[in-house]
């Protein structure tokens, strides 16, 4: 599994090197604008996890890499497990990028005028409420991204990386979000329900419960997706 993980990292190395500075700049900008770690975490996760994860499947199709990889001392289960380890690595890289961006935001606030100074930025970014919000938003966003990436990975293993298999999960998730927003905007009771829900979450115990549910669902979806991919890939002809 570790060998397959190394191979995946090799494949995305160049993409990551290009992606990291862009991701960092975007997070810095959003952090300075919104002064909220939740925004930074969401942006950093999106820029690394689904964006680079999507590329992974496409690299498999290049120049007979899929076939050549199977001639290396790896089993098919190693390859699938390595792929999911790579996806976890992307999540960690995304979170680290967010942490670095928050730190840099505070540093920038210390030297740039008009941003409230380092203490102001520290208060905005590192207060208990801000951290709680970042935790909740981050985990919810991670769950949504995981649904998207895992669906994409299953489709890649089953049908290969095509435009359809790349776009379908992304469009599906966006469509669900858009419908939710549309319905919410039509009916005031839905908006009120959302507000009530958020207020209900203000208690630390409920917040922890909600975060736990998001994390558990993320892990469960990843595990189920890995099991499906393994089943598909052991039968796939290369």
């Amino acid at each position: 599994m570790i060998r397959a993980w190394h191979l995946d990292l090799m494949m995305i190395r160049q993409r990551m090197l290009l992606n990291l500075p862009i991701s960092l700049v975007l997070c810095l900008w959003l952090g300075l604008q919104a002064q909220s770690p939740a925004t930074v975490v969401a942006a950093a996760l999106f820029m690394t996890y689904p964006m680079v994860g999507m590329q992974l499947g496409q690299y498999d199709e290049l120049k007979g890499w899929k076939s050549y990889r199977m001639t290396l001392p790896l089993s098919r289960s190693d390859i699938v497990a390595g792929r999911y380890l790579t996806l976890l690595t992307l999540v960690i890289v995304g979170l680290l990028t967010a942490a670095v961006a928050v730190g840099l935001n505070i540093g920038i606030a210390a030297v740039a005028p008009g941003l409230g100074g380092p203490a102001g930025m520290m208060a905005a970014m590192c207060s208990a409420d801000a951290v709680h919000a970042a935790l909740l938003v981050g985990l919810a966003f991670l769950l949504v991204c995981t649904v998207m990436v895992c669906a994409m990975t299953i489709l890649f293993y089953r049908f290969g990386a095509t435009t359809a298999t790349t776009m379908l999960p992304m469009l599906g998730v966006f469509a669900v979000l858009m419908v939710a927003l549309f319905v919410g905007s039509l009916d005031e009771s839905v908006v009120a329900a959302w507000s009530d829900g958020l207020l209900w979450l203000l208690s630390p115990e409920r917040l922890a419960l909600c975060c736990g549910i998001c994390a558990a669902l993320t892990v469960a979806i990843m595990a189920a997706s890995a099991a499906i991919c393994l089943r598909i890939y052991t039968r796939t002809e290369l």
Binding site: L62, K63, S67, T71, D78
Partner: peptide
Amino acid sequence: GRSEGVAAKELLGVVFDTLAFPDAL
């Protein structure tokens, strides 16, 4: 393709008609 074949593939060298590694490497 299973773990039983991994040891055999350690002793196997395969060359296809194209170099399979990514261009940027």
